[in-house]
């Protein structure tokens, strides 16, 4: 169908995008890899010696690296569990007959559109604050001691905030998937004598599997790089209690000006993200065939 002429025109039209993305990703990435082998600190101008894998050695053996990895994983897994379970439950609920479904949908979606710095600060001050926060007030109402969420369980608090941001996303996608479920299939199952619970287990959940996978993979990509929420609430603290990998890299490079060490950390983050990305790309790639 396509002639030679239209092919060369097409190549011409794609090239700006390809070249830009190439420059955007590959060139800086190559530079990061290069820096990661140098002894390069912005505070110590002069020669940048080649130090081999020493930056990686320091970064990987730094106790805060292991903590950051652990925190990153807890953060990602915690938010995933909350948003996927909550998202499925909410999607099932919102798919039921009700009055004002459109409005409820809008209410549920809203947090996704709130910028991370706003949601983190609102939660930090107006809800989690041990003196003036609403949660402290409710605790007192019930005769409990107010709890200082952000200093006593900083990571949990951040998981809560991030889950609030991402629950709408999971709900929206799962609800969309739910509404594409053929109602005749449900009716057939009903005719076959399946109870509401069996229908959920045997029809709804299998139908949602693909979307749940997509939700998990996409959220993982974003959750691996949670940053702003930590920056404006705990600054990674107390100590390193809520430091994740991106925050550690940020601290190393822009607070301690250790370009070499920060670069090594960045590459470690890239490798971790790629492991997830490979799975995600396979899924989307399969979808492309269909």
């Amino acid at each position: 169908m396509a002639t030679q002429h239209s092919r060369s025109a097409a190549r011409l039209m794609i090239s700006p995008a390809v070249i830009l993305l190439f420059l955007w990703m590959i060139v800086p990435l190559a530079m990061t890899i290069y820096f990661s082998f140098l002894n390069y600190n912005l505070l110590r101008p002069g020669a940048h010696d080649f130090v081999g894998f020493r930056n990686y050695y320091y970064f990987l053996t730094d106790p805060s690296f292991l903590i950051a990895i652990k925190n990153t994983l807890i953060l990602v897994l915690g938010v995933l569990v909350i948003t996927v379970v909550g998202g499925v439950a909410l999607a099932v609920l919102l798919d039921q007959p009700m009055w004002g479904q459109g409005i409820v949908r809008i209410l549920v979606i809203a947090p996704f559109f709130v910028m991370p710095t706003v949601s983190a600060l609102v939660w930090k001050n107006m809800f989690l604050n041990p003196v003036n926060g609403l949660f402290a007030y409710f605790a007192q109402l019930m005769g409990l001691q107010p709890y200082d969420f952000l200093s006593q369980s900083p990571l949990m608090s951040i998981i809560m905030i991030v889950s609030w941001e991402w629950l709408p996303f999971a709900t929206l996608i799962l609800l969309t998937a739910m509404q594409s479920l053929d109602s005749e299939q449900m009716e057939a199952a009903e005719m076959d004598g399946a109870s509401a619970i069996s229908r959920f287990i045997y029809i709804t959940l299998p139908h949602l599997t693909r979307s749940i996978t997509v939700v998990i993979l996409i959220q993982t990509i974003f959750l691996l790089s949670v940053f702003a929420e930590i920056l404006v609430t705990t600054n990674g603290g107390p100590g390193t209690a809520s430091t994740n990998l991106p925050y550690l890299v940020y601290g190393q490079s822009l607070l301690q000006f250790d370009v070499g060490g920060g670069s090594a950390g960045g590459i470690v983050a890239v490798i971790l993200a790629n492991i997830v990305a490979i799975f995600l790309m396979r899924m989307i790639g399969k979808n492309l065939e269909a």
């Binding site: 390809v18 993305l21 790089s225 991106p246 960045g266 790309m281 790639g285």
Partner: peptide, 29 residues
Amino acid sequence: VPGKRTKDVLMWMLSTKMMPAVGVLIPIY
């Protein structure tokens, strides 16, 4: 005008989105 490599190009573009920003933070900065 899909070609043989169109799909690969698309996937590659997607892969750039998966790259965590901290990986390129320092050079960009």
